[in-house]
Write a protein that binds this DNA or RNA. Structure first.
Lengths: 216, 216, 216, 216
DNA sequence: CATGAATGAGGTTTCATTCAT
DNA sequence: GATGAATGAAACCTCATTCAT
């Protein structure tokens, strides 16, 4: 694949190209959710996208590149939200501003996850599988989530927001709890009222991690 | 495979047979952890177990059967622990007995998970992948975990041990948190002090789910 | 396999495609005659046809489909010949027209068998083997032959052309005799003069089945 | 397999041996009729015979040897019947004695085929398949049938019993007709009255091959 | 003697990727 | 650009035959 594309940027060719990529990724996502990334062949993707197998390789070097393309917006959105939150948190001068920072983060992430719910579900589904072949980009994201959630929790603990437990423990516990709820919700395992569930989760987390609570 | 085996029980043949099954399952487990259930061929398993490909099919109908064999002890142990705990809990007459019941469950499960840590890691790794082919037995266990944890949480809530949130939410949140910690621990993503981590987790959960705590 | 093919009809791709199918079926026929349908692997077929194993499955779903393709012309020709003959026979108004009808059938079938002698030999070779796997299409044809020959004989008997024996007996006897001669001839077991043999066979059949002859 | 067997001839060991061979061959015959000689594994045979796979090779060198054993009585009976008939025929001094000779042959063969109907059906089923592997002994018999029926017919023709057509034609036509009837009968394709059918067949053959009949 | 465990070649089918049209 | 034909490396599973118990 040449890096230079013919035609003017934004021109007809560019548009066609975008459309094709979009058709392929969304067809792939649907199939991946059904049968797993490793269980879907290039043939099925192109057939579902209404094009031909050979054409796939015009747009993606291989299946892994398509998966990376699929995850890019979620990963970038996640990093952006975290960057912004960390900025706000490090600028916070008192407890209320800190809490506001975390609220902001919650809202940003909620919006992000909602906007990419298909990819989120794919992420949850594939994140723990060995990062082999086309699945590598998933692991990139899951490492990111683990790393940044721990950093963030550390900030909170340093600011006296959390009880003084290992920040890796509290961070991963929260991540695990949230991911499990998302999984149940996205797969239809259970149907939850989103707002109510969010409130409940926040309450659990807040009380569970509240600093002054004496351990039982 | 005939059900009657030749040779005296406990004789050489019986021994060989047991050894083979053991060699195959443990070789398979190791490889599954490295490359995923779907990513490991029967050929590699038998080579690692020091036998021939064709011989695999004398012991297991197919890869799925081996996976089921691998998961059987964990699944059975899990059900036994849950059965016993539910019995104890339903017989509990006061708050302390209830808490003792949950403590018992925690200890039983801890011992179980520790005893089958390899399979536990495999479970965590594969539980969310589409339950296709050899992966089906994993899904059986994950459904079991979800179902029984919810039931158990419901018992706790009815007994006033938990705040009155949807038991599915608290149950899955706890399961998710615990699983995430186990995952980090078993994969070596982080090294935790087990006792300290258990204490921290229990404290988080207890405080997070304590009934009288007013929501923030 | 998509039903729409690229390229103009009659273009290079269409040509290549036809050629491949032709190469595969004729290579397969030759090998089938040597070693039996069940004794020939896809690998040998593709090697003989000068292509790769995987490519076979682009043209045929499996070996059975190739066999069905191989038998289609003979089966269709047989049905067409029988349809036409039955029409002629049912329109016949006197004995001579009836005999002429049967003569027509004999000529049609002779031409058909001659045109597809390879497939005919394969049919004779495989028709009685258990209709399992790739051999099923052969049984379809052999059932057809039995059924239609009996029907036809019944017509003849009702018109007083044959002695009043069970039409199944006379039909199958004639079919068996003819098939045995064809087999000897096609396998080179013996070399016959075709015309003379045909005459002899007809004479035997006609005399053997002639209505007015008193049983010995 | 040593050629010398332990134990006295006719002793317990000899008896056991015979019984085992009998169990194996009859189990094999049943399976062969269902799925073809090539489609039946040694494992299935031994399981059906109630013994173990390894044991098979104590009694037969390989599958082909079992098939040969299965066909031996029929082949020997056929040769004996033919030998006797040819003797009678060559000693015949007039037309009636000749006809009586053929009648004798018919009766002998009828009894033989009836006594070994399972093997006869297997013969019909496998006779034309390529004589490869375990199927070789079948071809031995089919060659025998062809050769001897022609010889016999030639004798008849030389004695003026048959019209002067190629004896191969009349012989094979009769063989083909008879085999086709047997096939229909033994497979249950049709149910015939045996006596009536035999009469009809004989009449057809006699009239069809009668010397003085002018060709149509 | 009897059993079934072991071997490994071989068969069918799938699929990522390249390439002619 | 688009199409699907071609390739060949695996993967799964079977089975005749040998051999330890």
């Amino acid at each position: 694949m040449p890096s230079h594309r013919p035609g003017p940027p934004g021109g007809k060719r560019e548009q066609n190209r975008r459309r094709r990529v979009q058709e392929l990724t969304s067809a792939a996502l649907e199939l991946f959710l059904q049968d797993g990334i490793a269980g879907v062949t290039v043939d099925r993707i192109t057939t579902a996208a209404g094009t031909s197998k050979g054409n796939f390789y015009r747009y993606f070097g291989d299946k892994e590149e398509l998966v990376a393309t699929l995850f890019a917006p979620l990963r970038e959105g996640f990093e952006a939200a975290l960057d912004r939150s960390e900025e706000v948190l490090s600028a916070a001068r008192d407890h209320d501003e800190l809490v506001a920072g975390y609220r902001l983060l919650g809202v940003s992430l909620g919006a992000l996850l909602f906007a990419h719910s298909g990819v989120v579900r794919l992420y949850l589904q594939e994140a723990r599988a060995p990062a082999v072949g086309a699945r590598r980009p998933v692991r990139v994201l899951s490492d990111l989530v683990a790393r940044r959630s721990i950093t963030l929790t550390d900030v909170a603990r340093e600011n006296g927001l959390l009880r003084t437990v290992d920040p890796r423990v509290s961070a991963l516990a929260v991540v695990g709890a949230v991911e499990r709820m998302l999984w149940a919700s996205l797969t239809g395992e259970h149907t939850f009222d989103p707002l109510q569930t969010a409130e409940a989760l926040i309450a659990i987390v807040m009380d569970g991690l509240r600093p002054t609570t004496p351990a039982m």
